[in-house]
Design a protein around this nucleic acid. Structure first.
Lengths: 144, 144
DNA sequence: ACGCTATCGCAATCAGCTCGCTATAACGAC
DNA sequence: GTCGTTATAGCGAGCTGATTGCGATAGCGT
C-alpha cells in the first residue's frame, strides 16, 4: 500500500516541528491520502469514523489546519458549500461552474498573461489558489 | 436628494412585476442607495433599523434577493465573511487581497485574454463576477 | 517509569444566511 | 371609498460550515 509510504515522511515532519503523532492523526492522514484529490472535511471525518468511530469532527479540522501550516495540504473554496482539501504538491487552479458545480483543473500557465497584466497595471499579485475562479462550463453555457 | 429619484423607477419595476411597494421595502432601498458602493446585508439592516427599528434582517435578505432577481443589484463574495451587494449597473470585477482584505476594482477588459483562452481551451465561459479573484495587494506582496 | 504538555473528545458557540408561520397591509376591482 | 385577495412582514427557529473552551488523556523526551 503506497499510502503508508506517503504518510511516514509527513508524520516525521510533524514530529520534527514538536508535534505529536497520535492514533487519531495517523488515521486522519491515512484516510486523507487514501481518498485522493479534493476532499471535504466532512467526507474525511465520515471516512475516518468508519475505522475510528470517536475521532471528532473538530479534531479533523484542527489537524487539517496543522497540515496546512506544515505546507502539506491546501484548502480551496470552490464556491458555496464546504472547502475542499488537497495535497499542496498537487498544485493547480480551479474553475468552477456555478450552474452545475463541475470543477475543471487548469495549469497555472493559463493565468500567466493575466498575472503579468495585474502586476503591471495594479501592483496586484494574482493568487487564485485559495478561491476558485467561477463561470459556466461548456454544457451549462450551451444550455443558456 | 438624488436618492429618491433613483428609487422610484426601481419601485416601478417592482410593481410592474406584481410586487408590492411597502414602507419596509422603500426604507431598505433608500438606505441601500444612500450608502453607495459595496454594502453587506448586516450593515444595510443596521442602517435601515436606525430609521425603522423593526425591519427584520430576514426582510432585508428577502428584498435584496428580489432586487437581484429584477436585475437591479448583484452580490459578490469577496472571500471569507459576508457577501457585499452593489448596483448591477455599476459592473466591474473585484480583486481581493487575502492579506489585508483590500478590494481593487478592475474593468472587465482586464480579463479579456483569459476569457478567450478559457473558452478556446476548456469551453469554459469565465464569469468572475460572483466570486472575487484573490491575491495580494502591492503593500502585502512587498511585505512578504 | 515519570512528568510535562500537546492533543483529544465533547459540547457549546459562532457567522451568515434561510425558512415556516400567521397577522397585516397593498393594491385591483367595484 | 371599501372590500377581498394575496403578497409580504416580523418573529423565531433552524441550517450549514466551522471554531473554541474545557478538563481528561496520552505522546514522547528524560
Amino acid at each position: 500500500m503506497p499510502v503508508r509510504e506517503e504518510a511516514e515522511p509527513i508524520l516525521g515532519l510533524l514530529r520534527a516541528q514538536g508535534g505529536r503523532v497520535t492514533t487519531s492523526r495517523r488515521a486522519i492522514l491515512e484516510a486523507f491520502l487514501g481518498m485522493g484529490g479534493h476532499v471535504t472535511a466532512e467526507a474525511l471525518t465520515t471516512r475516518v469514523q468508519s475505522a475510528q468511530p470517536d475521532v471528532h469532527e473538530s479534531t479533523v479540522y484542527r489537524f487539517l489546519d496543522d497540515l496546512e501550516r506544515l505546507g502539506v495540504v491546501d484548502h480551496v473554496h470552490l464556491g458555496h458549500g464546504p472547502a475542499v482539501y488537497h495535497l499542496s504538491s498537487d498544485s493547480h487552479h480551479h474553475l468552477v461552474c456555478d450552474g452545475c458545480g463541475a470543477v475543471v483543473e487548469v495549469p497555472e500557465a493559463t493565468f500567466a498573461e493575466l498575472r503579468t497584466r495585474l502586476r503591471d497595471d495594479f501592483g496586484f499579485a494574482l493568487q487564485p489558489r485559495h478561491f476558485a475562479v467561477t463561470g459556466r462550463c461548456r454544457r451549462c453555457s450551451e444550455a443558456d
